[in-house]
Design a protein around this nucleic acid. Structure first.
Lengths: 143, 143
DNA sequence: GGATGATGTTTCCATATGGAAGTAATATGG
DNA sequence: CCATATTACTTCCATATGGAAACATCATCC
């Protein structure tokens, strides 16, 4: 039990370190492409992958692990830039769904390409395909 | 190449999600114990584990993946609370090493115990010891 | 069907953060 | 040795964030 707790603590510690390191790298890479922050890109990608092509701000907040107020503040400039639009729920006027515009679809395609390239770059050194799969699978159980 | 890039992107995405989720959990758990933020606790733990029991603020900034100014701002209240002290380099007056006081050593022991308990809790469900080891090992190569 | 409670969103405020600039001390190059 | 560059640290400022409160809408209960 003790050794297991110990390795759990080590895994958590390294998760924080690796996460911070990758966030820096991805923020720099994505910012250079289309002036998108990492959170901007993740937000657009979540909307693109969403069922029906739209997400409420609450759903986005949960997916991005940020507060609802942050989603409001983040989406506003992306609407101004023409990447995002609004859509109402047919039977519930409280919802203000986030949807991608045409320009937003182009932007998210570019951002996803950059994201994938950056991810491939992270693992380009001494990583076997199976190891990347294993890491993704294990991390999936934490999210 | 394509499939490998794809799984790399998925792994990176899940790393961000898992990291954010665990940060919330750990911040709540550690805050409840001794009013320490996660970054406070990690800072103290790094100093405790450091060679010679001391670290420069620049070294701390790298270990915590934050800016030097954040280290300055973070250590100041911990000095006031009596957890941290300062030590000068014998031959270079630029260095203001961060060291633990007696109270700081007690605090970091408590924080480490809480940290380990929280980590164990995260993996308490359907995780084999070998899987935790594997995850920690793979993450170690990213940090 | 009117009061109460719950939900989605926005606004406001206090706090946290990074980067640039400033300060102090050491290293380097002539 | 003196000027310049580099390094460690701090301060200042602009921005990002979460949480509480406000607001609008919908659901529930009597």
């Amino acid at each position: 039990m003790e050794t297991s707790s110990e390795s759990a603590a080590i895994a958590a510690l390294r998760l924080f370190q690796a996460g911070a390191r990758l966030e820096e790298k991805f923020a720099a890479g994505l910012g250079a492409v289309h002036g998108l922050s990492l959170k901007d890109a993740l937000l657009l990608m979540h909307v693109a992958d969403a069922e029906g092509g739209r997400l409420s701000r609450i759903e986005l907040a949960k997916l991005l692990a940020v507060s609802p107020s942050t989603v409001t503040r983040t989406t506003a400039p992306l609407e101004k830039r023409g990447f995002l639009g609004r859509e109402s729920h047919a039977h519930d006027a409280r919802f203000a769904y986030v949807v991608l515009t045409k320009a937003g679809q182009r932007a998210v395609a570019d951002a996803e390409a950059t994201f994938t390239r950056l991810a491939a770059d992270v693992f380009s050194d001494r990583w076997a395909a199976a190891e990347i799969e294993t890491l993704g699978s294990l991390l999936g159980r934490l999210a």
